[in-house]
Amino acid sequence: MTNTLRIAALLALSLAGAVLVVALRARGWSAVPELALLPVIALGLSRGWPAGTALGLATGWLVDLVPPGGDPLGLTPILYALAGSLAGRASRVGPVPVRWVALVVLGSSAVPIAGRLLLGATQGQQLDLATAALTLASTTVAGIVLVPPLLALDRGEPAW
């Protein structure tokens, strides 16, 4: 698989994740993991911060443009770019231990969650910290399961 195809595959997985998350929320699932963010974290871990930031920006736009869309529009791209950049700073050559993946997913997925809370606080909203904490926990668990195969996909290695 060529380099461009791998990035396109990660972008397509992010779109699938964004649509699935919106549909699951509509079916009453609360604290759904940020599935669209996981390919961003995987690419950042695999290739470093510029790639993670770029895919984060692109994926964030996908998330914000899937109806009903982000509120405000453009917030998710910025937060996902920061999350991808953070994951990219944690990039390592060679095999990535699961514990390191868990730590990076925890740190990176905290960025969009904290960003939304921060914006809410500046707008004088009451903050739903319990749902934010549950979303962080569910994203971390999903990341521990899904990021290693996504990393392998980007590196052209066997997924499992």
Binding site: V22, A23, R25, A26, V63, D64, V66, P67, P68, G69, G70, D71, T76, R116, L117, L119, G120, A121, Q123, Q125, Q126, L127, D128, T131, A132, T135
Partner: peptide
Amino acid sequence: RVVGLGTPTATGPQRLT
């Protein structure tokens, strides 16, 4: 039928589709 619920903000979802 509700087919989508938006990204929750600090207080919860603001929009649905």
